[in-house]
Design a protein around this nucleic acid. Structure first.
Length: 566
RNA sequence: CGGGACGUAGCGCAGCUUGGUAGCGCGCAUCGUUCGGGACGAUGAGGUCGCGGGUUCAAAUCCCGCCGUCCCGACCA
């Protein structure tokens, strides 16, 4: 491609509405343009990268036996009514009527549609199967953000496996795991596989692939020593025991005027340190009101609470609801003497004595509380949010907690979907059995953006060669110089001949502009052709990532590039 | 959905408080000089000031309504 003919609208200034690095750079470097919130046009450079990302994914899934499908984007709403997901997913589902008045939706995912096809799986002899497609999804997100990282229309590779039993599923799952590891490597990212909450999805197990980034929306707890890694929605940690005072203590009520928070009580004469207080939270789990108890300096991880209670929705109670239940405002709440309400206590409170907590009367607390003696605990559970620096439950070393981008998610669904969707086969004995399923997803554009988050510097994008829109840019410093033209045109055709993707910067621009643009768009290698080198029979060869520059003879440069790209 | 900010030329912004001429930088076009890290000079093209209504002799500017975009939060297989 000749740059003079290419549509690569680079911008000198950062776009005003882009904050995430990948968003800023992809817009500035002319890869994408926004059409509306969460909806982007792929410009030629963007489309080249997107196609390469899809090809890598395709290669790796094909390599583990995947069969590529292409299912439609437009679905009859009726199919979604059957599984009830037109209701449960209604807030993100784009739905409307076609011209005949039939209710249709744009698919937010494709389980239901794959299921219609898989109904033609009839016999155990047809299993296992690995089906996938790379298709557009529509999800009407309440708040799209950070460029391509969270959008409303995007491409996803979603695969589905069908097995006769859970052993078969385990094999398919492990193969996907390995394929995903290779994919993220090839995309230039250091992805960590973490245990994830299966949440309302049900199923046996799920693993998310996470790339550390400060624009990520998830938090991961990771142990460098032993490799333990989990989404904080499911992560555990150990914290040092607190030594409670010896001796007998009785529950004693005392006035605490003006004390509203844990911190207030720490500073109050006769109060207590945070780790010697009991924090009492009032939550609705689905429609039941419950008390959740934590150590004063600990925080609640709501997803863990949902998981241990097998509920799907939680919300903090409002002040009037709290008042009706306990007769006091948040800040003076406690579980001592509370009856008829489910009390879920975090493991961190086990065996604790002589604690201080609210008295369920404004401006009063109680001390001398022995958690197990004085409080009726319905359920002990680990519902505490893991914090950076706490200790690994596996090996005891300090955990790191960091934000990350979820670049892939693989699920062992089991029969969770197969049963309601009626995906069954006849086994050897002629018995109808549900198929054991797995599902596996990678967002294409999100991975493009995540790769930029991981591969950039202050000059622009630094693509891994395999997904760069071009492998090499030939920067012609003096396109008005005959010798320069001759050399660069020859190189250009030889490189193309050698299978290298070349961008020939033949624009009538000053050198500085060309260098800046080449760096901004992130082409891995640059060959600079200028009068200075021509006199010596050499070109300058620059590696984008290292900035390293060498002089290479005319007749060696093509083989050098080919060697580096291999 | 709650909170905040913003909407003026392709991009980045000023002008709005105190109503009257729509401006700057970049980019773009032509010419000239330049040419190894975002050149310089000259000339020029380009704007329904987000949309609708109101106040006024007069609205980018004041008032009302709406729409859109971003950020924080809620939400999110």
């Amino acid at each position: 491609m000749r740059w003079s003919q290419a549509f690569i609208p680079t911008l000198r200034d950062d776009p005003a509405d882009a904050e995430a690095v990948s968003h800023r750079l992809l817009v500035r470097a002319g890869y994408i343009r926004q059409l509306m919130s969460g909806i982007y046009s792929m410009l030629p450079l963007g489309q080249r990268v997107r196609a390469k990302v899809m090809n890598i994914i395709r290669e790796e899934i094909d390599a583990i036996g995947g069969q590529e499908f292409l299912l439609p984007q437009l679905h009859p709403k009726e199919i979604w009514d059957r599984t009830g997901r037109s209701e449960t997913m209604s807030d993100i589902m784009m739905s409307f009527e076609d011209n005949k008045g039939a209710a249709v939706v744009l698919g937010p995912t494709h389980e239901e549609i794959f299921a219609t096809v898989s109904s033609e799986l009839n016999s155990y002899k047809q299993l296992p199967q690995l089906w996938y497609h790379i298709q557009t999804k529509f999800r009407d997100e309440a708040r799209p953000k950070s460029g391509l990282l969270r959008v409303r229309e995007f491409t996803m590779k979603d695969s589905y496996t069908f097995d006769l039993d859970f052993d078969g599923l385990d094999i398919q799952f492990d193969r996907h795991y390995a394929a995903y590891v290779r994919i993220f490597e090839r995309l230039g990212m250091n992805a960590v596989a973490v245990a994830a909450s299966s949440g309302a999805m049900g199923g046996k197990e799920s693993v998310e692939f996470m790339v550390a980034s400060d624009v990520g929306e998830d938090e991961v707890a990771h142990c460098d020593a032993c490799g333990y890694a989990a989404n904080v929605e499911t992560a555990s940690s150990s914290v040092p025991d607190i030594e409670d005072p010896d001796g007998e203590f009785a529950v004693e009520r005392f006035p605490t005027p003006g004390v509203r928070t844990i911190a207030d009580l720490e500073g109050f004469a006769g109060g207590a340190l945070a780790d010697r207080q009991i924090k009492t939270l009032v939550y609705f789990l689905d429609d039941e009101i419950v008390l959740v108890l934590l150590r004063g300096d600990h925080g609640l991880q709501e997803q863990k609470l949902l998981d241990v209670t097998q509920t799907t929705r939680s919300r903090p109670a409002q002040s009037d609801e709290i008042m009706a239940l306990l007769g006091a405002e948040a800040g003076s709440l406690g579980a001592v003497g509370v009856d008829g309400v489910r009390v879920i206590a975090d493991e961190g409170l086990r065996g604790r004595r002589s604690m201080t907590t609210g008295a369920n009367e404004n401006d009063f607390h109680v001390r001398g509380v022995d958690v197990e003696r004085d409080i009726v605990i319905s359920q002990w559970a680990d519902v505490r949010a893991v914090v950076d620096g706490e200790h690994c439950v596996e090996c005891g070393n300090p955990l790191k907690v960091f934000t990350a981008i979820e670049v892939g998610h693989i699920f062992k669904l089991g029969t969770f979907y197969a049963e309601p969707l009626g995906v069954t086969v006849l086994d050897k004995d002629g018995k109808t059995v549900p198929v054991v399923m797995g599902s596996y997803g990678i967002g294409v554009e999100r991975n493009m953006a995540a790769s930029v988050e991981a591969n950039h510097d202050d000059k622009g994008i630094v693509w891994p060669a395999e997904i760069a829109p071009f492998h090499v840019v030939i920067t012609v410093l003096r396109p008005d110089d005959e010798a320069s033209i001759e050399v660069s045109e020859k190189l250009y055709s030889e490189l193309i001949e050698a299978g290298v993707e070349v961008l020939l910067d033949d624009r009538d621009e000053r050198p500085g502009v060309k260098f800046k643009d080449a760096e901004l768009i992130g082409v891995p290698f640059r060959i600079t052709v200028g009068p200075r080198g021509i006199d010596n029979g050499v070109v300058e060869f620059v590696t984008r990532k290292s900035g390293e520059s060498t002089e290479v003879a005319f007749d060696e440069i093509v083989s050098e590039v080919v060697r580096l790209l291999r």
